[in-house]
């Protein structure tokens, strides 16, 4: 054997061994990584808040949409692709809430774990009975109707319990070791909601049957749960900006029927909201839909707390006896 060739072979062998060892190391690192916290991405901060409540220290949660904004129209920042690429779990609201921005991000994230059909892709709407599912044929003359139903179901705390269960099931499937932790965190969250529910119901009970006008169909589930009646919207059709004529008719109706409240998310343009408010005796309330929508809404429970308090305060001040 020529010494030169021998040396080359030797070097080659060493190299191979080195890379093999490195690969083994990397694999082990991956195994170790799997044991680290679950990387959870939630499309909205409410889902994020519920995921945190259920996941505790075993998960690390990132929410994509800002709580202050219109989650139908979140800007699809490229940084989201980065976050989604590393995610173990993606929790989406579903019912077409994120249809305008999420799908291309997921496609570009090239992460099999969060492709629909995998346990890492969690759709919060699954298991929730949705309202406003259109009957019969639908077309866009009806505005931007969601064929699967109204996606703003999380403002009903009982739906938050269902969603927490869906999320816990996904966590348990992906991280079976933490099953006990998830289960007990879920129970804690659900019983906390049950407790608060008593309180919220008690506070709102005196106002049952109160008629409200809302900007968008955001508060349908909330109203349904707490006995309010949503009678009209500032949007003439879902997803369609109000026309002057529609606002005129609406103002007339609020006057005629003595409707007491207008509910709008903080991000809705004050131009049309205040116009209706100023022209009528109805109180305008800015009620956040998402966690972070106002500074006080720090998590899911404080979000509902804030809204309940705002309504009670407004109606108390408004009532003639007060």
């Amino acid at each position: 054997m020529i010494p030169d060739e021998k040396g080359r072979r030797m070097a080659c062998y060493k190299m191979k061994t080195f890379f093999l060892a490195l690969l083994t190391g990397l694999c082990l690192a991956l195994v170790n990584d799997a044991e680290a916290r679950l990387e959870v991405v939630a499309t909205t901060p409410d889902l994020g808040s519920i995921a945190e409540a259920v996941g505790g220290d075993r998960v690390s949660v990132t929410s994509l949409a800002r709580g202050t904004e219109d989650a139908h129209f979140t800007s699809p920042r490229p940084s989201f692709i980065r976050v989604l690429n590393r995610a173990d779990v993606l929790i989406e609201n579903g019912a077409e809430l994120e249809v305008g921005w999420l799908p291309p991000l997921v496609r570009n994230a090239r992460n099999r774990a969060i492709i629909p059909g995998n346990p890492g892709r969690v759709k919060a709407a699954d298991g929730v009975s949705l309202l406003d599912i259109p009957e019969g044929a639908v077309d866009r003359t009806m505005g931007d109707v969601h064929v699967s139903g109204n996606p703003h179901f999380l403002l009903d705390p009982l739906n938050a319990k269902i969603v927490a269960e869906t999320i816990a099931a996904a966590f348990i499937e992906l991280d079976p070791e933490g099953a006990g932790d998830y289960q007990s965190a879920l129970e804690t969250f659900q019983s906390r909601i049950d407790e608060k529910m008593e309180e919220w119901k008690e506070k709102l009970e005196p106002y049952e049957g109160t008629q409200v006008v809302t900007y968008h169909a955001t508060y349908r589930y909330f109203a349904e749960r707490f006995g309010f009646e949503t009678v009209a919207m500032i949007e003439p059709l879902p997803g369609v900006e109000p026309t002057p004529r529609h606002l005129r008719d609406l103002i007339q109706r609020i006057r005629d029927e003595n409707i007491r409240m207008i509910w709008a998310e903080p991000f809705r343009p004050s131009r049309s909201v205040d116009r209706v408010g100023d022209a009528t005796d109805a109180v305008v309330l800015r009620l956040p839909e998402l966690v972070g929508g106002v500074p006080d809404a720090e998590d899911y429970i404080s979000l509902i707390d804030y809204n309940v308090r705002a309504i009670v305060d407004a109606l108390d001040a408004d009532s003639p006896e007060a």
Partner: peptide, 21 residues
Amino acid sequence: TRLLRTFVAGSVFLFTAGLVL
């Protein structure tokens, strides 16, 4: 050389395993 080889492989393995564990 075999010794060297084993040593290199072993140390890399240990290093990474050490990191992991």
